[in-house]
Design a binder for these strands. Structure first.
Lengths: 331, 331
DNA sequence: ATGAAAAATGTAATCGATTACATTTTTCAT
DNA sequence: ATGAAAAATGTAATCGATTACATTTTTCAT
């Protein structure tokens, strides 16, 4: 079943069938109707490889994230797929594992696949040293991490403000020896750290530098950092972690040592996770708008695909503070 | 940059270059070496659309799951993507939402995309009424749910045995009024239900039918079912839920009513979730080998792609009982 | 009614690989 | 050394759409 069959059955040329199907050129209404009827009757759908070969584009978009098992990315991915589906595009999923080599390999793969566009959560290395030419390779939207070059579409959150809000919440509840466990070597971690300091500054206070820890943003990193903090001669009376993975590890360390929350130590974190409302006390979190990030990125990508000349936009989304019981009940 | 350029630069024909690259036909070693050197020097990579158009296959596989936000599928997906990457294939991700129409649409999409193969977690409707011709459309591996027609590759777990093991564990701890919340209208839910009954039978007991509930396997279903159970004049002294989503809802209902676990009610479930080790008491679970399911399915798919004549296999993987504190500490 | 401009449609080239078939080269038994 | 068989290689067709360019038809001002 190919376009030639439809053309013959409709009594027009293949070019006209193609024009009807693409919808980009005028065709007389009666001809259009006839062709569409035949297409439907014969249950024809165009060969994507042929279309792609000739027109040098596909209806696939690439989504490159660190790890789909991270609920943050799963939610982003879900949103991207929903948007893609509405546009009749399919999404090719890639896990970079924060590994710049894998990331590069996948970016090349997308090139080979002729992807219509890419949504990328860049590795720290790429974000810090963003190549202008990457964006000129085709439609691209950056998510989650600010890149050094701002001349590219991106969707990020207001890390600094969100961290400040969360820290302020703790300070307001009377905690002052607040420890901070931040993801090391990432723009995101740095911004959240800055927000943390900024909240202290606003309160006329200075955090204890011994309680500020930067570790790789993985579960075991959070666990090790928290274990270390609890062993300090003068341990903190509260902790903030800068990601869901770090929080999981840190909270596990707290549970290992049977430290009472919030009486002995208050706890709060970035990222809503399936477990944060389940523990007792339930954990106070800053919830990132994960679905909205994916959705916005998807929509921006399709706008850029439709109009490559469109000036790049940076969208900053806000986080929500979900107050639960892990930081006490005052004031 | 196309094959013709490589052919000219290597002093051979395009056919020979193609043969070198596909590796499927003999080429004299010195010619092969020369061609590979030129390919490398010119950083050539073949146009996938052209290859796909002519050879009627691609290096993409489709993965159709209910929802990537479900950690079960996220883990399966991760495994599939890892295997695909090793074979230099990319994976197209689709969320069916348990909706047979969406599922059908995606299956057609995979056809249009000329996917080299499909890994499918079928909707209940499809699983119960499996079309033989689906499998003849190309390489296909079914996961998670047994399908009515066994003449297709599949990877499932031993639901019956796992449910029996979990129920037995509870009975052994002295609980007898055990409630069961099972996913409605799914083969998986039914098998787990059967295993539940089977454990009772082995113990010479009969479960109270009023405590057996079947609901749609979603968070709100679990919450509603558990809320109802707790309001019974003669409530259960233990509950088992048949999936992670149901468990989340059910446990939330238990927390809403401040019911003590395990003293007032014991709790255990299918599926390891991020929160199950985090609560106090931590939740006893049957852990499905999620990564292994995806990995096995991926490997089976590539074997079938390599050899379409291979007789179909059904692989059954075992679950692991992770005993924590939610079912008491006896015996 | 007429002719120029615009719209609709058709013809045939094209995208870049693979592969059927043809030809040349090599191998090997005699 | 010779000829048949096998291996290596080349030529050109092919996959099925889109699109540049050509042609035909329609519109519309006069």
């Amino acid at each position: 079943m190919k376009i030639k069959d439809i053309a013959e059955a409709s009594g027009v040329s293949t070019a006209t069938v193609s024009r009807v199907l693409s919808g980009k050129q005028n065709v007389r209404p009666e001809v259009k109707e006839k062709v569409l009827a035949v297409v439907k009757a014969m249950n024809y759908s165009p060969n994507r490889a042929a279309r792609s070969l000739r027109s040098k584009t596909t209806s696939s978009i690439g989504l490159i994230v660190a790890d789909i098992q991270n609920p943050f990315f799963a939610s982003v991915c879900r949103a991207v797929e929903d948007v893609a589906q509405q546009h009749n595009y399919s999404v090719i999923l890639c896990n970079s594992d924060e590994n710049p080599d894998k990331e590069k390999q996948y970016l090349e793969l997308m090139q080979d696949e002729n992807a219509a566009g890419i949504i990328l959560a860049p590795t720290t290395k790429l974000a810090d040293n963003f190549q202008e030419n990457l964006a000129s390779n085709g439609p691209l939207v950056i998510i989650d991490r600010k890149v050094s070059n701002t001349n590219v579409d991106s969707v990020v959150i207001n890390n600094n403000a969100a961290a400040k809000m969360l820290t302020h919440h703790m300070l307001e509840h009377g905690y002052q020896r607040i420890a901070g466990i931040f993801g090391a070597r990432s723009v995101t971690g740095r911004e959240r750290r800055d927000g943390f300091f900024s909240a202290f500054r606003d309160a006329g206070l200075t955090p204890d530098e011994n309680l500020i820890i930067e570790v790789p943003a993985r579960e075991d990193g959070g666990h090790a950092a928290m274990t270390g903090l609890l062993q300090l001669p003068n341990p903190p009376d509260a902790v903030i972690t800068s990601s869901g993975l770090l929080a999981g590890g840190a909270f596990r360390a707290i549970r290992d040592k049977e430290v009472a929350v919030p009486h002995a130590i208050a706890f709060a974190t970035f990222d809503e996770s399936p477990w944060t409302p389940m523990t007792r006390p339930a954990i106070t979190v800053v919830k990132q708008p994960t679905y909205a990030i994916g959705q916005t990125a998807g929509e921006m990508l399709f706008k850029r695909i439709a109009n490559p000349q469109r000036p790049p936009r940076q969208v900053v989304l806000s986080c929500e503070l979900i107050v639960r019981q892990s930081c006490g009940i005052h004031p």
